[in-house]
Design a binder for these strands. Structure first.
Length: 267
DNA sequence: GTCCATGTTCTTTA
DNA sequence: CTAAAGAACATGGA
């Protein structure tokens, strides 16, 4: 759901309103969405200004003027929006960051997302794979050579590459002409290079269209993405392939629905 | 009422 | 021991 293009779009739409602004008050409606549990979040946020907002994988990292950091993960159904203080509070609004003239609200019905306080320590991303938009083909090849899982499962693993989810793995594999069941360590160097290009092209195109809105995703201004209209395979089961006349197929891999064109992505 | 959607973590299996 | 597969989580919509 929110994957790299959606998370980046949220960051891009948050920044113009938020950077340099001072946090006036903090309301945490559910303490269990915060890690570490029981941490005095408002005590550390009030009167601080937001110095930077960045993305790493699917995480939205806030840096304060004193160097402290925290990040928000949108999980499956999380939304971060800029709201007027007068706007009615929606159900499942877990956190409100109040600024002088507006609020940032974090709403997440399914609560797979949350807020993680990092403090001043070096960002703990040791377990995260490289950024898809920066990854080099040899880097991806080295990682894939070490695992015998189907490529679909490997690309969903955030320690292999950080930021892809179910939509963009399916779309990238289609763009690269690779069947999702292909074993990761069976893919030639040439094909991995093609896959690297396909991932970058797919993500950049999705970014240009503000990400994909299936149901829950909206950017910080409340606007939906448009890339779902251009999906080649995701959620297009039994529809005609856009490149040939075959019908898109759906299988389940790693407990996730997986869509592909049997002709364009031969096994 | 049942089933399905999915990102991540935890548990079980091989 | 490690790698991989599977279950669990939570809620709303079909």
């Amino acid at each position: 759901m929110p994957e790299l293009p959606e998370v980046q779009t949220v960051v891009d739409t948050l920044k113009p309103r938020t950077l340099g602004q001072r946090i006036v008050s903090v309301l945490l409606n559910r303490s269990d969405v915060l890690t570490p549990h029981g941490f005095d979040l408002s005590g550390h946020l009030i009167s601080r200004t937001v110095a930077a907002i960045d993305r790493r994988g699917k995480r939205i990292i806030f840096t304060l003027d004193n160097g402290n950091r925290f990040y928000i993960h949108l999980g499956m159904s999380g939304r971060l929006t800029i709201e007027s203080p007068q706007t009615d509070l929606l159900k499942h609004t877990h956190l409100i960051l109040e600024f002088k003239t507006f609020q940032i609200r974090f709403k997440d019905p399914r609560r797979f997302g949350g807020i993680w306080w990092l403090g001043s320590e070096e960002f703990a991303d040791a377990k995260m794979g490289p950024e898809p938009l920066l990854i080099r083909p040899q880097q991806l090849a080295a990682c894939l050579a070490k695992t015998r899982r189907p490529i679909k499962n490997a690309l969903l693993d955030q320690t292999v590459i950080a930021g892809l989810g179910n939509i963009y793995v399916d779309e990238s594999l289609f763009a690269a002409g690779i069947h999702p069941l292909t074993l990761a360590n069976d893919i030639s160097a040439e094909k991995v290079a093609q896959l690297t290009r396909a991932i970058k092209q797919t993500l950049r195109k999705a970014l240009r269209h503000g990400g994909s809105t299936l149901r829950d995703y909206f950017d910080a201004n409340g606007d939906a993405g448009k890339f779902q209209k251009l999906h080649a395979v995701y959620h297009r089961t039994a529809k005609k392939c856009r490149r040939c006349d075959s019908l898109i197929e759906r299988i389940v891999l790693g407990g996730r629905s997986t869509h592909f064109c049997p002709s364009c992505q031969p096994h």
